[in-house]
């Protein structure tokens, strides 16, 4: 096979693999910039994947599936808020707990409702988000370089993929060009100042968590009814943590988040491609290296060897109004 064809196929699969990361990392961006650590991204993804698969199976409507996914994800987010904002609990503990509840409950309910060992039944074709062929894709496929790139990488994705990339400038605009975004960033740096200005810290943080739930709902839905056609137990398989790594790798900024997710998606796709293949001079490269690379890169970044990653100052600290 031609090297260019290989590159096109890896790029196409990299895009598909990076979409759930992108939604989830943007979700984490909103809560972390508001000063709430969110280890529970993984759980939100799983819970929304389960909800989306159930509803899409029952109604054969992907948009209802998406709404269910978003609703459940926001619900999980609000529990996180109740524990970490209202009750000033430890945000990390709460996130870990919700990950467990989501991982267990999806399988328990799935088994009780459908009896297929935690799987949901197959979602019918019209209940899924199917690939969209952009206009002109077939016509220019034969044009060298641009043709295959347009036809196989840019075109042929489902609607959620395009929404994901739209969310990047939208998130940037909300965070950096709106009053809500300014206050949200302020509450993650210095909640006391926001409180003094007469803005409720708790309500602002709750709203940030609702946005987080909203975006994470897309990620779960993508996994369940766009990438595959059913919910499988633990189908997020650590993607929530990779997204968290991407968020840190991007230093909590929306546009770099997109590039970090694309990079990690590319590594994943490249690992799949390299499975069982050998490289001249080196021999077979273990795929485990590619699997571990996102985490290693993030640690190297955190160590301060590639610039400095400075988290929001008030992250992880519950806000107490008065002593």
């Amino acid at each position: 096979m031609d090297y260019f064809d290989i590159l096109i196929s890896i790029l196409g699969s990299a895009i598909r693999l990076s979409i759930p990361l992108l939604f989830t990392a943007l979700a984490g961006l909103f809560s972390e910039r508001a000063g709430i650590f969110d280890i529970g991204l993984e759980g939100k993804m799983l819970a929304s994947a389960f909800a989306a698969a159930c509803v899409a199976h029952l109604t054969a409507d992907p948009w209802l599936g998406l709404s269910a996914g978003i609703a459940v994800s926001i619900l999980v987010s609000l529990v996180h808020g109740f524990a970490s904002i209202t009750n000033r609990g430890n945000q990390i503990v709460s996130g870990v707990a919700l990950n467990f509840v989501a991982a267990g409950l999806t399988v328990v309910l799935g088994q009780a409702w459908f009896g297929q060992g935690g799987r949901t039944p197959q979602v019918p074709a019209q209940g899924r988000f199917s690939p969209i062929i952009l206009p002109g894709a077939d016509e220019i496929r034969s044009v060298p370089f641009i043709g295959p790139l347009y036809a196989n990488v840019i075109s042929g994705n489902n609607i959620l993929t395009y929404i994901a990339f739209l969310m990047v400038p939208l998130s940037w605009w909300v965070l950096y060009r709106t009053r809500f975004g300014l206050r949200l960033r302020a509450v993650g740096e210095n909640p006391g100042a926001v409180d003094t200005a007469g803005v409720s810290v708790a309500w602002l943080r709750y709203r940030a968590l609702i946005v987080t739930g909203f975006l994470a709902g897309f990620a779960g839905t993508y996994l369940a009814i766009a990438q595959s056609a059913a919910f499988i137990s633990n189908m997020s398989a650590g993607k929530g943590y990779i997204a968290l790594a991407a968020l840190i790798f991007a230093k909590w900024k929306p546009v770099p988040v997109m590039f970090a997710c694309l990079l990690f998606g590319f590594l994943d796709a490249f690992a799949n491609f390299m499975q069982g293949k050998s490289v001249p001079l080196i021999g077979e490269v273990p795929v485990q290296i590619f699997q571990a690379l996102p985490y290693i890169l993030t640690c190297v970044l955190l160590a301060g060897f590639i610039g400095t990653a400075r988290p929001p100052r008030a992250g992880g600290v519950p806000y107490t109004k008065e002593r």
């Binding site: 529990v79 109740f82 524990a83 970490s84 009750n87 609990g89 430890n90 945000q91 503990v93 709460s94 870990v96 707990a97 919700l98 990950n99 467990f100 509840v101 989501a102 991982a103 267990g104 409950l105 399988v107 328990v108």
Partner: peptide, 14 residues
């Protein structure tokens, strides 16, 4: 796993 998560939630975060 559900019980474990709920124990962490109630005994830890809440």
């Amino acid at each position: 796993v559900v019980i474990q998560g709920l124990v962490i939630l109630f005994a830890g975060a809440l």
